[in-house]
Each structure stands twice: as C-alpha cells, then as structure tokens.
Amino acid sequence: MSTTPAIPAAPEAVLAKAAEPQIPIARRVKQRLTSRGATAAAIIIAVIWTVPTFGLFISSLRPEDNIQANGWWNVLGDLEFTTKNYTDVLASAGGSASNLGQYFINSLAIVIPATIIPLVIASMAAYIFAWGRFRGKDTLFIFIFALQIVPLQMALIPLLSLFINLKIGEFQLLPSGTYAQLWIAHSIFALPLAIFLLHNFISEIPGEVIEAARVDGAGHATIFWRIVLPLSVPAIAAFGIFQFLWVWNDLLVALVFSGGTADVAPITQRLAELTGTRGDEWHRLTAGAFVSMIVPLAVFFGLQRYFVRGLMAGGLKG
C-alpha cells in the first residue's frame, strides 16, 4: 500500500486497505459466509475458468502432428514439447508467413498513445464537471455519459470519411494507413466512459484542498496539474489499464482504420485472419493466440491492484 502515499484519506483509500486481506485493520472474527460446499463450488469455478486457457497453452507447445492426432490432455503420455509453433508465427516474413512479430510492434505503437491521449483529455473534462460552475453542466455530463450507447459500428464510416477529408490544401492531415487515425478513433470511443469514471473519482477530492490552493492564488491549470492529477493517480491508472486492454484487444476499429496494412494493423487483426484462413491449423492458432495475450496478461497481473482500486472508486458511486 505504500506505493501511493500522496492519496488523502478518501473513502477509496480505506476500501483499498480493506481489500488487502493480510493487513489486520481490526482483527475480525472469522465470519465467513462460506462452508465446505462453497469452497468446493469456488474450486470448480476456478478450474472451469482456467482449463480452456491452460489447454490452449499446452497445445501451443505441442508439435503440429500431436495437436492433430489427439487432445492436449494426452500430453502426459507423449511429453513432447516444441517452441517451433512460436518461432513459426513470430519470426518468418513475407505475405505467406503470419509474421506476428511486426503486428505485435504495431499493437504497441497503437496502444500507448491511444491510452495516454484519452486519459488526459478525459481528466480535464472530468475536472470541470466535478469542480467547474456553469449552467447546463449536469445535463451535458449526463449527455456525455449517455453517448456510451452509440454503437461503434455506426460511427466507423462517417468518422473515416471525415479523416479522409480533413485536408489543408493538398496536405492530408490524417493520411490513411497510419497510426494517427487509430489513435484518434480509439481516443474518441474511450471518452464517455473515461469522463464518467474519472469524474466520480475527482469529485471525491476534498473541497478544502482545492479551496486552499485557490486562496493561494493558483489558477485552474495549476490546480489541475499540481493537485488534481496527482491525487487521481489510482483512478487514472485503473482506467488506463482498462483502456490499454480494450485497445490491445480491439478488432473492429482496427479493421476499419488500419486499412489492413501490415504497416499498422495490430495483432488481433492478424489473428482473426489466421482463424479465417487456417481454420484447422491449430498449431499456429494456439501459439498466435498466446502471443497476443502476453502483453495484456502481463499488464493485468502487474497492475491489477490499481485496476480494482480505481474502478472501485468510480464503481461504488455509480
């Protein structure tokens, strides 16, 4: 819990502490609702939720012939492992190869700006919705929240044609087949939820802190950067992870805005193509699926406590 000492004692912080079972806040009596049956049920759920991924992982390490010959649960019988599937999907080049390495880099290049840009813009808006004063503020805020319902599929073509027509003279501001379109598209689609969640957190910051700064003569910009942002780190981190996972795993936006080129298309797009054209080539598919999962899984396991904490802050209030 020592990683974010700057957080004031917002209700969130208490919650987060409670979420750490090893910290004895008050030695609670063991009043678990659980019984033996519950434990068994929990174990069953855990197993069901893990087995599919585990099976895929085992399969991705088996030689092609074995994958086709029998199920992965036979692996104890043959104990043959290979990394060939991985070298196959990653290393090779050219139109015929799945060439996932390049797509992996693309995914990274897409996801970093597509996470940072909406976070900054949403925090700014959220700050105004929490602490600014103007007429129609609540209505505007609810309207933005409601924009979540616009199905993405609807927005694709109009947005794409807008990008194409955005020109200064002959110079195209956002040429197709570049990351720029993807960054902006992802940023836009993230905004409604981001503004909503960040607002919930930022509005919890004690008013005195902001008033004090104001009295000292600090302007909005200063307050925002010096006080609000540092205090909102948990929520920003949480939504950042959320957005990161979302962008990394996206297929639809990528299909439309990347134009399918190997220059910018992310890994999910390639994986979807592999499922389409090589339906039965499980050795490539399994390894490919795992490569695409590595980053989100690492991000998730590395940062999961921020994820929970930040979402909680937004969540409970909703």
Binding site: K30, A46, T53, L251, T268, F300
Partner: peptide
Amino acid sequence: FIDRARGEKALKALVFMPMAISMVGAGVI
C-alpha cells in the same frame, strides 16, 4: 465464496484472467 479464503488473490486472478484476453483470442480458445 473466496472472501478471506487462503490464496484469495491467486483465486481471483484465475477467474479474472479471461478479461485480459481479446474476444478474438477467447473465440480461438
């Protein structure tokens, strides 16, 4: 069920893991 059980964190991670997988990946799985 797993509230304050031993290994709660790990048990949570197991069930949460699919969230980190793309829907395409989940489709493959």
